[in-house]
Computed example of a mutant assay.
Amino acid sequence: MFRKRLILIIAFIVLIMLSACSKKENREGFDKNKIKVVVSFNAMKEFAYAVGKDKISVVTLIPNGTEPHDFEPKIGDMKSVSQADIFIYNGLGMENWVKQTLESAANSKRTVVEASKGIEPIKNSDADEIEEHGQYDPHAWLSLKNAEAAAKNIKDALVKVDSSNKGYYEKNYAKFSRELEKLFNEYRAKFEGASNKNFVTGHAAFAYLCRDFGLKQNSVEDVFAEGDPSAKKLKQLIDYCKENKIKTIFAEDMASPKVSQTLAKQVGAKVKKIYTLESKEDGKDYIESMKDNLKEIYESLK
């Protein structure tokens, strides 16, 4: 009897210790035996893991379902940034808090990666957006070509920080690059053969994808998904959809689905989901999400 009680007591103590360790690991966020990487939001995490895989431990600052433009780092976030070997952000005005955060969470050994560095940015045309968010459309990661450039920037940083595993990172980057190119070539041929090039989204996040494939988006909300459209704007969208025989209105996680649903009802269209990858959705990685996006857009053009 005593022996059984002793075993139960020991088991209970071990459970408490494991729980404490788990809480400590969750709070700190990093596996200390791996390269510590902090990313701003989900798309950057997708690129980091595509190249770094099991050699890296990643903390994502912006929680799923939170708009990156509105995010403000907390004390725990600052601690993660200060501990990071590599910090990855998109740039192009997407994360306006980065400069101050890096200065406050100082770490002279940390490598900083602006994932969009080297791409050709698309300029905003709306004066109010330029004044509030900057001159560029930040949604560069929704282009397969830009994704390849971002992954290369991340690969170069990993090689710099962990040169002993250069071959590993180069191999992973090459594989990811081939997957991107295969998907790009498949849909370039399909979109070139499409007579209709127009589609409608919840917010204007797909300009870089459109540039890749010669498409044209119209949207319910602006580039930064702020506010519902005016009655005048909604009327213009209804006329646009009818004129261009739009049969699908795409809705994203970060944009209000109600307006997309209202628009679809007005023009006799259906509402379909599209991924912006700002959050992790449906357990899909970057390639899977973009494959779904391209398939649905292509089907909507028929």
Rank of each mutant, 00 (worst) to 15 (best):
K145D: 05
K145W: 02
N146K: 04
A147V: 14
A147L: 09
K152Q: 12
K152P: 11
N153F: 03
L158E: 09
L158A: 05
V159M: 06
K160V: 05
V161T: 08
D162P: 03
D162E: 01
S163H: 11
S163P: 04
S163Y: 13
S163I: 06
S164Q: 07
G167V: 13
Y168V: 09
Y169I: 02
Y169L: 08
E170G: 06
K171A: 14
K171L: 06
K171S: 14
A174Q: 06
A174H: 01
K175H: 15
F176D: 05
S177N: 10
R178H: 15
R178V: 10
E179T: 01
L180I: 01
K182T: 10
F184I: 07
E186K: 06
Y187N: 00
R188I: 09
A189S: 13
A189E: 10
K190E: 00
F191V: 00
E192L: 04
G193M: 01
G193L: 00
G193K: 13
A194E: 11
N196G: 03
K197H: 02
K197R: 06
K197A: 02
N198I: 10
N198P: 12
N198R: 07
N198L: 13
N198H: 15
V200M: 11
T201R: 06
T201P: 13
T201N: 07
G202H: 01
G202I: 01
H203W: 09
A204E: 11
A204Q: 11
F206E: 00
Y208T: 15
Y208W: 07
Y208N: 14
L209D: 12
C210D: 15
R211L: 06
R211P: 07
R211A: 14
D212M: 02
F213K: 01
F213G: 00
L215M: 08
Q217E: 15
Q217T: 14
S219E: 05
V220Y: 01
E221S: 13
E221K: 14
G227T: 11
D228P: 07
D228S: 14
D228A: 11
D228W: 03
S230L: 01
S230C: 01
A231N: 05
A231C: 02
K232C: 02
K233T: 15
Q236L: 04
L237D: 05
I238Q: 05
I238S: 03
I238G: 02
D239K: 14
D239Y: 09
C241L: 08
K242A: 07
E243H: 09
K245S: 15
I249D: 12
F250A: 09
E252I: 08
D253A: 06
D253Q: 13
S256T: 09
P257T: 02
K258R: 10
K258A: 08
V259H: 05
S260G: 12
L263G: 10
L263Q: 11
A264Y: 13
K265S: 12
K265F: 03
Q266D: 14
V267M: 02
A269C: 11
K270Q: 14
K270M: 11
K270R: 12
V271A: 13
K272S: 08
I274M: 05
Y275H: 00
Y275C: 00
